[in-house]
Amino acid sequence: MSLLEINGLEAGYDTGQVLFGVDMAIDRDEVVSLLGRNGAGKTTTMRSIVGTDVPTIRGGSITFDGHDLLEKRSYEIPKLGLSLVPEARRCFNELTVEENIRLAANHATDPLNRESVFEQFPELDDMRNRLARNMSGGEKQMLAIARSLVANPQMILLDEPCEGLAPYIVRRIESIITEISEERDVTFLLVEQNVAVAMAVADRHYILDEGHIVDEVSTERLKTDDELRQEYLGV
Rank of each mutant, 00 (worst) to 15 (best):
T96K: 02
V97H: 06
E98K: 00
N100A: 06
N100D: 05
R102V: 09
L103P: 04
L103D: 03
A105I: 01
A105N: 06
H107P: 04
A108W: 10
A108F: 13
A108L: 11
T109V: 13
P111V: 07
P111L: 05
N113R: 08
S116H: 06
S116E: 15
F118A: 02
Q120F: 12
Q120E: 11
F121I: 13
F121V: 14
P122D: 06
P122Q: 03
P122T: 09
D125G: 13
D126L: 13
R128H: 10
N129D: 15
N129G: 14
N129H: 12
R130K: 15
L131Q: 08
L131R: 10
L131N: 03
L131P: 01
A132V: 01
M135K: 07
G137N: 05
G138D: 02
G138R: 11
G138L: 04
G138N: 05
K140Q: 15
Q141V: 11
M142E: 06
M142L: 15
L143H: 04
L143F: 01
L143Y: 02
A144L: 07
I145S: 00
I145E: 01
N152H: 12
P153R: 05
P153H: 09
Q154K: 14
I156L: 02
L157G: 13
L157M: 10
L157A: 04
E160V: 06
E160A: 04
E160W: 10
P161E: 03
C162P: 03
E163I: 02
E163R: 05
G164W: 09
G164L: 09
L165Q: 10
